[in-house]
Amino acid sequence: MRDTIKGFAIAVSLSVMSTAAFAEGGVPLVAAASKPVTSAEITGSVPEKLNISKANVFNRLLKKIKDPNAPPPEDGIHDTANEATFALQPPKVAYEGWPRTEYGNHVDWVKALNDGLINPRYDRVDPEVEPFVMDLDIVRPVKASVPDVVFPHKPHTQWLHCSNCHPRIFVPQRGANQINMSAIILGEKCGVCHGKVSFPITTKSCKKCHSKPKPADWTPPLSEASVKNPWR
């Protein structure tokens, strides 16, 4: 009996420690209270005092998203002292039953549209106006080892007008635009929308744009410095 209780206490203390580690700032809750017994002291298996500095928390820089679709009163930008905040719709209510993704709004807008789950207006007042959709794929070969980029006009013209991109963001001519990843991440070129409103740039979304596999015999070009390296 006592062993079970002890085991329970240890398990609970451990869960306290893990919760504390997740809390922002990583301030351990255990230390905050009037110094309770730690699991280490109960088991005696770990050094008495683990003096881990706050500079050495496991994730120093990674910020995990707790709830990507938090309801307005809990999302950190809406004021809860404002009564109307509670009249706003929580995103999860709207997204019920939609195809999910792991980034952005965490929903697949392209699929939601194509599956007929939404039918947003193309005209402010007339719900009957059909969008002018153009199905033209532009392949952009990439020097790096990642798959080549395919820019599909179809999902873009379903949402946008030609004038949203041409000519201010892109000259409407194949290969006439200099595009690279740094510019995109900084919010230029594709990054005007991707990373702001349409799906963002994360490890999980690279393949949405980099979707055409390289030929089987492709090898990355060697850099000049490596070819000329006298110590090679």
């Binding site: 910020k63 990507p68 679709n69 999302d75 930008i77 709004n105 963002p200």
Partner: peptide, 9 residues
């Protein structure tokens, strides 16, 4: 918890 508003608000 750390604030996380809906993407694109």
């Amino acid at each position: 918890q750390p604030a996380q508003a809906e993407y694109a608000d």
